[in-house]
Design a protein around this nucleic acid. Structure first.
Length: 903
RNA sequence: GGACUGCUAGCUCAGUUGGUUCAGAGCACUGCUUUGACAGAGCAGGGGUCAUUGGUUCGAGUCCAAUGCAGUCCACCA
């Protein structure tokens, strides 16, 4: 069959992926083999494939495919994350487009829409991963809200509550005014923000008097809209400027509420005016200060970030609108002294990007200090290895300073908190209402009571008094943080919690490698390790490979808003999945961010093409296989085969090391160069039969073998093209596919052969260089004379040299040849004659340059060897090497001088 | 404010235990080739005071210190 001009990726991708699926190559079941398990970092159900996914999943696929080809039972588990905030936002938006307000729906109605949405759009990203060629075990596709998974999340909550690790408490939390939910600290992104620092006059009033004096105290604030929530003004006790004001009162501008002037050494005298307005409801520090000084908490904001009635003015106005208006009014009323530009870090919601509002709120928390211990040790001890290691420090620091985790979210889409309340506010934590009811009832009987969690005063329910009637229970309206389900992922995808010690989890857990982005080291990686030790008494994975961030050519992070994030599916369509995988991997140094540019896909496509053409060439020879070859070509062919076999082994050893350290980009470069340079540019040229000549059967067979091994090495990176070539190379039996073929193990390298091959390359390049400099056309032949002590050593490569430098004759001489251009390569001297060798001048110049260099080099070595301290301090091997260098240099100088005189 | 990382060719990066014959690769670039696998190609070539300064050493891209620049993470100073 005639091969197409270029590799046609669209057809091949579709055909082979379907074939792999049909043959169930990606499916894994426990057996005797060693498992290699990877769980996918579950993308959001709302997600669509972007470059970050492309990188992350290509890496996982490479590892999994290689493991599969190494005889391991490779299992890569796919799935999606319900992503509560993101998904709920999408559903709300969809409803809005249909003219439905979320507030007009019941919880059940809303969830019905949400599931509908999930069924319709939730699987898109998984389909896209197929396009990329990912060898996931689709039968294992998991979702964090699957029934079993859901139950496990609920039971884990109950278990942690019963252990006293989970409690309910009123704290300052991060409030997302757009999503109207609490956030954990990790979900807040601090961004440097240009702001104004407003200097405001608060007029002093005498104690007990409402009338203001002309005296005032100036405070500095970036949030003038919160002044209505002020409870005090605080100054440093030692601040001389304000000593006369201690114990006095000031009036809040605009609303004229009287607040005390208090002292606390928390205040920094140097900042602003040294006087701080204290607003306990709207600032974490102010809240602490408020607790200490028993200040009133005046919450002036609604949950959507508008001002409420407590603010007295601008009720219903959005907080930043109110800020502008209040600032203006303060100016008008003479309270605004001045405004300064001021830059500070402002917390933004990770999901909605709105400015986070500190807010006092009753939420559920995990007491992290109680479960962090083993998770910290495991990473410190390298029981779990981080690549690159620099993330170990980061992890350690976070774990050692870990704070409690706010896990409740004011959302409907997610795992509903299994807590039930009676009218008196007693809490019962149970999986179902019935169980909660039973708990409440049993309390009446005085059994089943449990210890409230230690250390958390808010923990647990108050025990109802004896004889109270059975209470009406209402379930908590809130959901759990998405990460509270994601942290169970490595074992719950195998039902490791819902069906403990089942065959699957025992076989696949702990998993081997986690490949993820450093951005979620705290969100997810750390918590998975904690959950793993808490519920499986074992680490969830042995190694974590952190990928870099995909950036554009200018180093900017790829993002929707910048519009610099290419459509991956379009790229796959245009260049092919293999080329895209190549493009992202070649640009992806281990442990660094990668600057991605579309041109790297071109490089990938060109590589496809190179391989394709090599295939065409080799297939073309099939009809020319014969024992009747020209004289000398057998020896050359044998040498070429021997050389490439050794070269291949050499590279395989190198690849082992690169894989071990996750230096995948380097591994790809290594394979790329092995194929393009060693195989195509050298080997194939060396064995290529001349015009209408034939090729030795053994050489041909070995060449097919080599080709097969090469595409095997490349397969994890570029699965489609390699599978196609695999089937083009030979007739295959049913079920003989590259995807499941086993890698050929490497054998010992004969360095004598590889060295000779290296020398041969240098000879060819050196002679070609001369040809070029002499401006010889490719068709013009040369006469070659080799001055060597080992003419026999050239016999097996003579034919190759003939071909590669287009020689008409090669002869061996023991003396200088005159009237020729010469070159020293290795130990031997080469003379080149042709019909029109004219320009000896340029060669003379080069020789002089080279002589100059060699002489300088010799001097530096001699200097070194004359240095007594060097001779006495350096290791014997080093000395030996230096002496050899000296001898080599002296010999070269001699030969160059001879050549110069011969010219 | 604290911590970490990086700075090597135009760009992206290699460079293990200090040894000059280690300054290297891939892209990009420059010549020459439209030859029978491949112009999405072939052949050859030119590019770098290894951020700066000082130190240790017989010897530093490699070790140490300081400085500069860039980036990341953490932190409650309004």
């Amino acid at each position: 069959m005639e091969l197409s001009k270029n590799f046609e990726h669209q057809q091949a991708e579709q055909y082979w992926y379907q074939r792999w699926l049909d043959k169930k190559y990606f499916n894994s079941k426990p057996d005797d083999r060693e498992p290699y398990t990877v769980v996918i970092p579950p993308p959001n159900v709302t997600g669509i494939l972007h470059m970050g996914h492309c990188l992350n999943n290509t890496i996982q696929d490479i590892l999994v495919r290689r493991a599969r080809m190494q005889g391991k039972n490779a299992c890569w588990v796919p799935g999606t994350d319900h992503a509560s905030i993101a998904t709920e936002a999408k559903v709300v938006q969809m409803l809005r487009e249909r003219g439905i307000q979320k507030s007009s729906l019941t919880r059940d109605e809303f969830l019905k829409y949400a599931w509908e949405w999930k069924e319709k759009y939730g699987g898109i990203i998984l389909q896209q991963l197929k396009k990329l060629g990912c060898s996931l075990d689709w039968d294992r596709t998991s979702f964090t809200m699957d029934p079993d998974y859901y139950r496990s999340v609920i039971n884990v909550f109950i278990d942690l509550y019963n252990k006293g690790y989970i409690y309910r408490g009123k704290r300052m939390i991060n409030w997302d005014v757009k999503a109207k939910t609490a956030l954990s600290d990790e979900e807040v992104i601090r961004k440097e923000t240009q702001q104004n620092l407003y200097f405001l006059k608060y007029f002093i009033t005498e104690a007990g008097l409402e009338n203001k004096t002309s005296e005032y105290i100036t405070i500095a604030t970036v949030r003038p809209e919160t002044i209505m929530g002020d409870s005090a003004i605080c100054v440093h006790p030692k601040d001389e400027r304000y000593k006369h004001l201690h114990g006095k009162f000031a009036l809040v501008p605009l609303i004229n509420r009287r607040i005390p002037i208090i002292t606390d050494d928390y205040v920094t005298m140097e900042f602003g005016t040294g006087a701080l307005k204290v607003t306990p409801a709207h600032d974490t520090n102010d809240y602490q200060l408020g607790l200490k000084h028993h200040l009133e908490v005046i919450d002036i904001l609604n949950d959507d970030g508008t001002l409420n009635e407590a603010a007295q003015i601008y009720i219903g106005e959005e907080r930043f609108e109110a800020r502008k208006k209040i600032a203006l009014q303060l100016e008008v009323t003479g309270h605004l002294l001045k405004t300064e530009a001021y830059t500070s870090e402002v917390g933004h919601s990770e999901r909605t990007d709105t400015v986070v509002e500190p807010r006092l709120s009753l939420q559920w928390w995990v007491d992290m200090k109680k479960i962090a211990g083993p998770a910290l040790t495991a990473v410190i001890n390298d029981d779990i290895k981080f690549y690159p290691v620099k993330f170990k420090n980061l992890y350690r620091h976070w774990m050692e300073n870990i704070k409690d985790w706010c896990i409740s979210r004011q959302l409907w889409w997610g795992h509903r908190i299994p807590a039930w309340y009676d009218e008196k506010g007693n809490v019962y934590v149970a999986a179902t209402k019935e169980e909660a009811q039973e708990q409440a009832g049993s309390w009446e009987l005085g059994v089943g009571s449990r210890e409230p969690g230690a250390g958390s005063p808010e923990q647990g329910a108050k025990r109802p008094e004896q004889g109270t009637p059975k209470p009406m229970l209402v379930q908590d309206e809130d959901c759990l943080d998405t990460w509270f389900s994601a942290w169970l992922w490595p074992f719950e995808v195998f039902n490791g919690y819902s069906k403990p010690n089942n065959e699957e989890v025992n076989y696949y857990y702990p998993t081997n490698t986690l490949v993820t982005a450093p951005e979620i080291i705290f969100f997810w990686v750390a918590r998975m390790i904690m959950a793993g030790f808490e519920y499986k008494k074992e680490k969830p994975f042995s190694e974590v490979y952190f990928t870099g961030i995909v950036r554009d050519k200018q180093g900017r992070k790829m993002s929707k808003s910048l519009g610099n994030s290419p459509d991956l599916l379009e790229l796959i369509d245009k260049y092919g999945a293999d080329a895209c995988r190549f493009g992202i991997m070649i640009a992806s140094p281990a442990g660094n961010d990668l600057l991605w540019d579309e041109s790297s896909n071109e490089q990938g496509r060109n590589f496809n093409n190179k391989l394709w053409n090599a295939l065409k060439l080799v297939k073309m020879w099939k009809s020319r296989v014969s024992n009747e070859t020209v004289a000398g070509s057998r020896q050359s062919g044998n040498f070429a085969v021997l050389w490439f076999a050794n070269r291949l082994n050499e590279i395989k050893v190198e690849l082992e090391y690169q894989y071990k350290d996750f230096r995948l980009s380097e591994a790809l470069k290594t394979i790329y160069s092995l194929i393009w340079d060693d195989f195509c540019s050298w080997y194939l040229e060396w064995i290529k039969p001349g015009f209408e000549q034939s090729i030795e059967p053994t050489v041909y067979e070995k060449t097919i073998d080599f080709f097969e091994e090469l595409i095997q090495l490349l397969h994890p990176f570029m699965p489609f093209l390699t599978e196609e070539i695999y089937h083009q190379l030979r007739e295959r039996k049913e079920g003989d596919d590259l995807t499941i073929s086993q890698l050929v193990t490497s054998s010992i390298v004969n360095t004598k052969i590889t060295t000779q091959g290296q020398l041969l390359k240098e000879v060819i390049t050196g002679l070609r260089d001369i040809r070029n400099k002499q401006q010889l056309k490719p068709k013009e032949t040369i006469r070659l004379f080799i001055q060597t002590e080992d003419a026999l050593g050239y016999k097996n490569i003579e034919q190759i040299i003939y071909k590669q430098v287009n020689a008409e004759s090669i002869s061996y001489v023991s003396d200088t040849v005159t009237g020729a251009i010469s070159a020293v390569i290795g130990k031997d001297k080469f003379y080149l004659q042709s019909e029109r060798v004219v320009d000896t001048g340029s060669q003379k110049q080069e020789l002089i340059k080279e002589l100059y260099y060699q002489k300088g080099f010799l001097i530096s070595i001699e200097k070194k060897l004359d240095n007594e301290r060097f001779v006495s301090n350096a290791k014997p091997e080093v000395l030996e090497l230096e002496r050899k260098k000296k001898a080599d240099a002296e010999m070269k100088i001699k030969i160059i001088e001879e050549s110069l005189s011969a010219l």
